[in-house]
Design a protein around this nucleic acid. Structure first.
Length: 393
DNA sequence: GCTTGTTTATTTTGTT
DNA sequence: AACAAAATAAACAAGC
């Protein structure tokens, strides 16, 4: 029964090479690239490579080696992927959220946008706007929060951000929004920040756990290698996650806060756990006196585990890796941090921001800022997603 | 009443 | 195949 529903959920062949691009010739030289599973499982090549092939190519990243990855060997693919990362402006450098930069790429006419196919643009029956972005909900949430000026968003803002960026999510809203909420609640990497008294409204703010910064260190936004668990487990116990907020292994269920085996109350699930009310990491009401900014108080409250003051990424960019705080590896080419390597500008007005995948303006802006061709203004959107996941150590 | 948030259960998908 | 992460569904409570 559920199966049927599930199938419905996958009604969009999404990013499978053949599903949306009409043909696979361009992307499937590896031999097994014509299926979803090929995304990240092609032998010898990074999953990232695959994904990149699907996403980046169209983008106009124009790496000839890319669509022929299979034939040219893993090396070529990886190289292409890496090269791609360097192409576009960083996510953060774009005015609108990162994906916006990819706009030109995501354009429905994206077939043309794809440099590789420029010689004979073919009409694609289905556009990217219908394709499900290759990001997990956790990734989406993370990106949204990261790109926000205050580094925290309300649920509604999250919804807005996602729908603005990904037309795919303008449909079946109930479904994915429920998933978003579930992700927020379920994952320790997201923390709830109460609204300030002077900012009444519905819902709390959601922020990233300060130590969750390396969640996507492996560059794979589709699937984390390990789930982030707040370091401070209930009581003194923390059979796991003892690494203080690092991603830890663990079965979805057994580790889950709500795990049957878990006798500990949900209160500390996210590590903030002291106050029953602050279950699952909800922060205590901020102290207006001590913390001027919403984020500041967040940081303050989360400072038990070694909290590293956020570096402005553009600042971090000037640092050598050994200067980075332990949990912020900005230097990783596919790191989500790297993806959003600069403090994003304040969220633009919806009217401006909107434009889905195909807002040329954004691309132009990005290009203007980055000095790159708008056509390449996307890479940041995809570049990180498909690198071979690397185990965090 | 709607939105937000939590929790449980199940299924799907990717990795080892 | 086993395991783990993610997606999905749904029930429920609380707050606005």
């Amino acid at each position: 029964m559920l199966g049927a529903v599930k199938m419905e959920g996958h009604e969009h062949a999404d990013w499978s090479g053949s599903g949306y691009y009409g043909e696979t010739e361009c992307y499937t030289s590896a031999g097994n690239m014509n299926s979803m599973s090929s995304y990240m499982s092609a032998p010898g090549m990074s999953g990232a490579g695959h994904m990149n092939a699907h996403y980046a190519n169209p983008v106009g990243v124009n790496h000839s080696s890319m669509h022929c990855g299979g034939s040219q060997g893993p090396g070529a693919m990886v190289q292409a992927a890496v090269g791609m990362t360097g192409l576009g402006p960083s996510m953060s450098s774009m005015s609108p959220p990162p994906p916006y930069g990819s706009v030109p790429v995501m354009s429905p006419v994206y077939g043309q946008a794809c440099g590789i196919r420029s010689r004979e643009p073919k009409p694609y029956r289905r556009s990217y706007t219908h394709a499900k972005p290759p990001y997990s909900y956790i990734s989406l949430i993370t990106m949204a929060i990261q790109q926000s000026g205050s580094k925290m968003l309300t649920l509604n803002e999250l919804y807005q951000w996602i729908t603005d960026l990904f037309p795919f999510y303008r449909q079946n809203q109930q479904r994915w929004q429920n998933s978003i909420r579930h992700s927020l609640s379920f994952n320790d990497c997201f923390i709830k920040v109460p609204r300030l008294p002077d900012k009444p409204g519905k819902g709390s703010f959601w922020a990233l756990h300060p130590d969750s910064g390396n969640m996507f260190e492996n560059g794979c936004y589709l699937r984390r290698q390990k789930r982030f668990k707040s370091g401070r487990a209930s009581g003194a116990g923390e059979k796991e996650g003892s690494e203080g907020g690092s991603v830890t292994t663990g079965s979805t269920r057994s580790d889950s806060p709500h795990s049957p085996s878990s006798t500990s109350p949900p209160a500390d699930v996210k590590g903030t756990g002291v106050d029953p009310k602050a279950r699952r990491g909800e922060l205590l009401p901020p102290s207006p006196v001590r913390v001027p900014s919403p984020l500041a108080h967040t940081q303050h409250l989360f400072s038990h585990p070694p909290y590293h003051p956020p570096l402005l990424l553009h600042e971090a960019a000037h640092l050598r890796p050994d200067h980075y705080p332990p949990h912020y590896s900005f230097n990783h080419p596919f790191s989500i941090n790297n993806l959003m390597s600069e403090p994003p500008p304040p969220r633009p007005e919806p009217a401006v921001q909107y434009g889905g995948y195909g807002c040329p303006v954004t691309g132009a802006l990005v290009a203007a800022k980055s000095g790159l061709d708008p056509a390449h203004g996307d890479s940041s959107y995809y570049r990180g997603a498909y690198t071979r996941p690397v185990m965090n150590t």
